[in-house]
Design a protein around this nucleic acid. Structure first.
Length: 152
DNA sequence: GCCAACGTTGGC
DNA sequence: GCCAACGTTGGC
Protein backbone atom coordinates (compact mmCIF):
# COMPACT_ATOMS: atom_id res chain seq x y z
CA UNK A 1 0.00 0.00 0.00
CA UNK A 2 1.54 3.25 -1.17
CA UNK A 3 1.43 6.59 0.54
CA UNK A 4 3.30 9.80 0.03
CA UNK A 5 5.12 10.44 3.30
CA UNK A 6 4.44 14.18 2.97
CA UNK A 7 0.74 13.33 3.17
CA UNK A 8 0.79 10.32 5.46
CA UNK A 9 3.96 8.55 6.59
CA UNK A 10 4.78 5.51 8.67
CA UNK A 11 5.63 7.87 11.52
CA UNK A 12 2.19 9.43 11.25
CA UNK A 13 0.75 5.94 11.61
CA UNK A 14 2.96 5.31 14.65
CA UNK A 15 1.55 8.41 16.28
CA UNK A 16 -2.07 7.48 15.57
CA UNK A 17 -4.32 6.39 18.42
CA UNK A 18 -4.04 2.63 18.65
CA UNK A 19 -1.48 2.83 15.81
CA UNK A 20 -4.53 2.33 13.61
CA UNK A 21 -5.89 4.48 10.79
CA UNK A 22 -8.42 4.24 7.97
CA UNK A 23 -6.61 3.95 4.63
CA UNK A 24 -8.80 6.40 2.75
CA UNK A 25 -8.60 8.61 -0.31
CA UNK A 26 -8.01 5.80 -2.80
CA UNK A 27 -9.68 6.96 -6.03
CA UNK A 28 -8.81 4.28 -8.53
CA UNK A 29 -11.23 1.48 -9.39
CA UNK A 30 -8.72 -1.37 -9.49
CA UNK A 31 -7.31 -0.38 -6.13
CA UNK A 32 -10.85 0.10 -4.84
CA UNK A 33 -11.74 -3.45 -5.80
CA UNK A 34 -8.86 -4.77 -3.74
CA UNK A 35 -9.82 -2.70 -0.72
CA UNK A 36 -13.46 -3.72 -1.03
CA UNK A 37 -13.22 -7.34 -2.10
CA UNK A 38 -9.79 -8.84 -1.63
CA UNK A 39 -8.34 -7.68 1.66
CA UNK A 40 -9.42 -9.64 4.70
CA UNK A 41 -9.15 -8.99 8.39
CA UNK A 42 -5.83 -10.32 9.63
CA UNK A 43 -4.12 -9.92 6.26
CA UNK A 44 -0.73 -8.26 6.34
CA UNK A 45 0.36 -5.41 4.10
CA UNK A 46 3.57 -3.56 3.32
CA UNK A 47 3.68 0.20 3.81
CA UNK A 48 5.41 1.86 0.85
CA UNK A 49 6.61 5.46 0.70
CA UNK A 50 6.18 6.95 -2.77
CA UNK A 51 7.04 10.28 -4.40
CA UNK A 52 9.78 11.03 -1.93
CA UNK A 53 13.53 11.13 -1.54
CA UNK A 54 13.88 7.43 -0.85
CA UNK A 55 10.94 5.47 -2.27
CA UNK A 56 10.62 2.05 -0.69
CA UNK A 57 9.06 -0.24 1.88
CA UNK A 58 9.09 1.06 5.42
CA UNK A 59 6.79 -1.10 7.53
CA UNK A 60 4.34 -3.93 8.02
CA UNK A 61 0.66 -3.40 8.73
CA UNK A 62 -2.31 -5.58 9.53
CA UNK A 63 -5.80 -5.14 8.11
CA UNK A 64 -7.97 -4.76 11.20
CA UNK A 65 -11.20 -3.76 9.44
CA UNK A 66 -12.32 -5.02 6.07
CA UNK A 67 -13.54 -2.81 3.24
CA UNK A 68 -16.24 -0.29 4.13
CA UNK A 69 -17.40 2.93 2.43
CA UNK A 70 -14.89 5.77 2.37
CA UNK A 71 -17.02 8.52 3.87
CA UNK A 72 -14.46 11.21 3.03
CA UNK A 73 -15.94 11.04 -0.48
CA UNK A 74 -19.31 12.26 0.85
CA UNK A 75 -18.00 15.42 2.50
CA UNK A 76 -17.91 18.42 0.13
CA UNK A 77 -15.37 20.11 2.38
CA UNK A 78 -12.99 17.17 2.41
CA UNK A 79 -10.01 17.04 0.08
CA UNK A 80 -11.06 13.54 -0.98
CA UNK A 81 -14.63 14.63 -1.79
CA UNK A 82 -16.11 12.98 -4.86
CA UNK A 83 -19.65 13.99 -5.85
CA UNK A 84 -20.01 10.78 -7.86
CA UNK A 85 -19.95 8.73 -4.67
CA UNK A 86 -23.27 8.70 -2.81
CA UNK A 87 -23.93 7.37 0.66
CA UNK A 88 -26.58 4.97 -0.68
CA UNK A 89 -24.24 3.76 -3.45
CA UNK A 90 -20.66 4.37 -2.42
CA UNK A 91 -18.04 4.41 -5.16
CA UNK A 92 -15.04 4.34 -2.85
CA UNK A 93 -13.96 2.05 -0.05
CA UNK A 94 -11.27 1.93 2.61
CA UNK A 95 -9.89 -0.51 5.15
CA UNK A 96 -8.47 0.13 8.60
CA UNK A 97 -4.80 -0.69 9.02
CA UNK A 98 -2.80 -1.20 12.19
CA UNK A 99 0.96 -0.91 12.35
CA UNK A 100 2.66 -4.20 13.14
CA UNK A 101 6.15 -2.79 13.07
CA UNK A 102 8.36 -0.29 11.35
CA UNK A 103 11.23 -1.92 9.47
CA UNK A 104 14.78 -1.44 10.76
CA UNK A 105 15.47 0.48 7.60
CA UNK A 106 13.84 1.41 4.30
CA UNK A 107 14.01 -1.35 1.72
CA UNK A 108 14.43 0.91 -1.28
CA UNK A 109 12.83 0.57 -4.67
CA UNK A 110 16.34 0.50 -6.16
CA UNK A 111 17.16 -2.47 -4.01
CA UNK A 112 13.95 -4.26 -5.02
CA UNK A 113 14.78 -3.61 -8.67
CA UNK A 114 18.23 -5.07 -8.09
CA UNK A 115 16.77 -8.26 -6.66
CA UNK A 116 16.37 -10.72 -9.52
CA UNK A 117 13.74 -12.88 -7.82
CA UNK A 118 11.44 -9.85 -7.46
CA UNK A 119 11.36 -8.79 -11.10
CA UNK A 120 7.81 -10.08 -11.58
CA UNK A 121 6.34 -8.08 -8.72
CA UNK A 122 3.39 -5.88 -9.60
CA UNK A 123 5.34 -2.94 -8.21
CA UNK A 124 8.07 -3.46 -10.81
CA UNK A 125 5.80 -3.43 -13.81
CA UNK A 126 6.21 -0.57 -16.21
CA UNK A 127 3.88 2.32 -15.73
CA UNK A 128 2.34 0.76 -12.68
CA UNK A 129 0.52 3.40 -10.70
CA UNK A 130 -1.76 1.42 -8.46
CA UNK A 131 -1.67 2.60 -4.88
CA UNK A 132 -2.80 -0.80 -3.59
CA UNK A 133 -1.43 -3.96 -5.15
CA UNK A 134 -0.98 -7.64 -4.35
CA UNK A 135 2.23 -9.20 -3.07
CA UNK A 136 2.71 -12.96 -3.23
CA UNK A 137 3.84 -14.91 -0.19
CA UNK A 138 7.08 -15.72 -1.94
CA UNK A 139 7.74 -12.08 -2.76
CA UNK A 140 6.85 -11.13 0.80
CA UNK A 141 9.44 -13.51 2.22
CA UNK A 142 12.13 -12.37 -0.18
CA UNK A 143 11.45 -8.72 0.60
CA UNK A 144 11.65 -9.21 4.33
CA UNK A 145 14.80 -11.29 4.02
CA UNK A 146 16.44 -8.17 2.60
CA UNK A 147 15.74 -6.18 5.73
CA UNK A 148 18.69 -7.41 7.75
CA UNK A 149 20.80 -8.68 4.92
CA UNK A 150 22.42 -5.77 3.22
CA UNK A 151 22.97 -2.25 4.33
CA UNK A 152 23.07 0.00 1.32
C1' DG B 1 10.80 20.13 -13.46
C1' DC B 2 10.53 16.49 -16.90
C1' DC B 3 8.27 12.88 -18.93
C1' DA B 4 6.35 8.10 -19.61
C1' DA B 5 2.42 5.63 -18.88
C1' DC B 6 -1.88 5.31 -17.57
C1' DG B 7 -6.88 6.64 -16.41
C1' DT B 8 -10.74 9.71 -17.32
C1' DT B 9 -13.58 12.78 -19.90
C1' DG B 10 -16.37 14.33 -23.45
C1' DG B 11 -17.43 15.34 -28.36
C1' DC B 12 -18.95 13.00 -32.17
C1' DG C 1 -18.14 3.00 -29.00
C1' DC C 2 -14.08 5.56 -30.63
C1' DC C 3 -10.41 8.41 -29.65
C1' DA C 4 -8.10 12.86 -28.81
C1' DA C 5 -7.24 15.80 -25.13
C1' DC C 6 -6.40 16.29 -20.65
C1' DG C 7 -5.19 15.01 -15.79
C1' DT C 8 -2.57 12.18 -12.53
C1' DT C 9 1.06 9.31 -10.74
C1' DG C 10 5.53 8.72 -9.50
C1' DG C 11 10.44 7.82 -10.59
C1' DC C 12 14.27 10.31 -11.82
Amino acid sequence: MKSEPDVFSIDDLMRSPGITEPWDGVRNYQARNMLRDEMKKGDLALFYHSSCEEPGIVGIMEIVKEGYPDSTAFNPKHKYYDPKSKADNPAWYRVDVKLKRKLNRTITLTELRDTKSLQNMKLMQRGNRLSVMPVTKKEWNIILSLENKKIM
